[in-house]
Lab assay of single mutants.
Amino acid sequence: KNAAQIVDEALNQGITLFVADNRLQYETSRDNIPEELLNEWKYYRQDLIDFLQQLD
């Protein structure tokens, strides 16, 4: 998997990933985040941060 796929997957589930103060953050109206997504975000944290910062 790559960062773009993970960001896309999150968006499809109503979750927006973004970077604030060099930390990976998310916004969602969901009550909870599936644990497998959280684990994936932790595992790919630096890739996601790098990818999202390139988009800014």
Rank of each mutant, 00 (worst) to 15 (best):
residue 25 Q to D: 05
residue 26 Y to F: 09
residue 24 L to G: 01
residue 53 Q to F: 07
residue 8 D to W: 15
residue 47 D to C: 05
residue 22 N to V: 03
residue 31 D to Y: 07
residue 3 A to G: 04
residue 3 A to S: 04
residue 43 Y to G: 05
residue 56 D to E: 13
residue 48 L to I: 13
residue 6 I to Y: 02
residue 55 L to F: 12
residue 36 E to K: 09
residue 15 I to V: 10
residue 24 L to E: 01
residue 14 G to E: 05
residue 12 N to E: 15
residue 50 D to R: 13
residue 46 Q to H: 10
residue 33 I to P: 06
residue 5 Q to N: 06
residue 28 T to E: 03
residue 27 E to T: 14
residue 42 K to P: 02
residue 25 Q to Y: 15
residue 22 N to A: 08
residue 41 W to P: 00
residue 15 I to N: 01
residue 17 L to M: 05
residue 41 W to M: 07
residue 39 N to D: 12
residue 43 Y to L: 15
residue 31 D to A: 09
residue 17 L to W: 01
residue 27 E to H: 14
residue 10 A to K: 00
residue 19 V to G: 01
residue 4 A to I: 06
residue 9 E to G: 03
residue 25 Q to A: 09
residue 25 Q to E: 10
residue 7 V to K: 03
residue 27 E to Y: 15
residue 3 A to C: 06
residue 43 Y to H: 11
residue 22 N to L: 06
residue 47 D to E: 14
residue 4 A to N: 06
residue 50 D to A: 13
residue 54 Q to R: 14
residue 5 Q to K: 08
residue 41 W to H: 03
residue 1 K to M: 06
residue 5 Q to D: 08
residue 2 N to C: 09
residue 48 L to V: 05
residue 52 L to W: 02
residue 25 Q to I: 08
residue 44 Y to W: 07
residue 21 D to C: 09
residue 23 R to E: 15
residue 44 Y to E: 01
residue 38 L to W: 08
residue 47 D to N: 08
residue 2 N to K: 13
residue 50 D to P: 04
residue 46 Q to M: 07
residue 53 Q to W: 06
residue 31 D to V: 10
residue 44 Y to F: 07
residue 20 A to R: 14
residue 55 L to I: 13
residue 29 S to D: 14
residue 1 K to E: 03
residue 11 L to E: 06
residue 56 D to L: 11
residue 34 P to C: 03
residue 30 R to D: 07
residue 32 N to G: 09
residue 43 Y to Q: 13
residue 29 S to V: 10
residue 23 R to L: 14
residue 10 A to M: 03
residue 52 L to G: 00
residue 42 K to R: 13
residue 39 N to I: 12
residue 26 Y to V: 06
residue 40 E to G: 02
residue 15 I to C: 03
residue 42 K to F: 14
residue 39 N to W: 12
residue 35 E to R: 08
residue 54 Q to S: 13
residue 44 Y to L: 03
residue 43 Y to E: 13
residue 32 N to M: 11
residue 28 T to L: 03
residue 50 D to N: 14
residue 27 E to I: 14
residue 9 E to M: 05
residue 23 R to A: 14
residue 54 Q to F: 09
residue 7 V to E: 00
residue 11 L to H: 11
residue 30 R to H: 10
residue 46 Q to Y: 07
residue 8 D to T: 15
residue 42 K to Y: 14
residue 32 N to P: 12
residue 16 T to N: 10
residue 19 V to S: 04
residue 56 D to Q: 13
residue 35 E to W: 08
residue 5 Q to T: 11
residue 18 F to D: 03
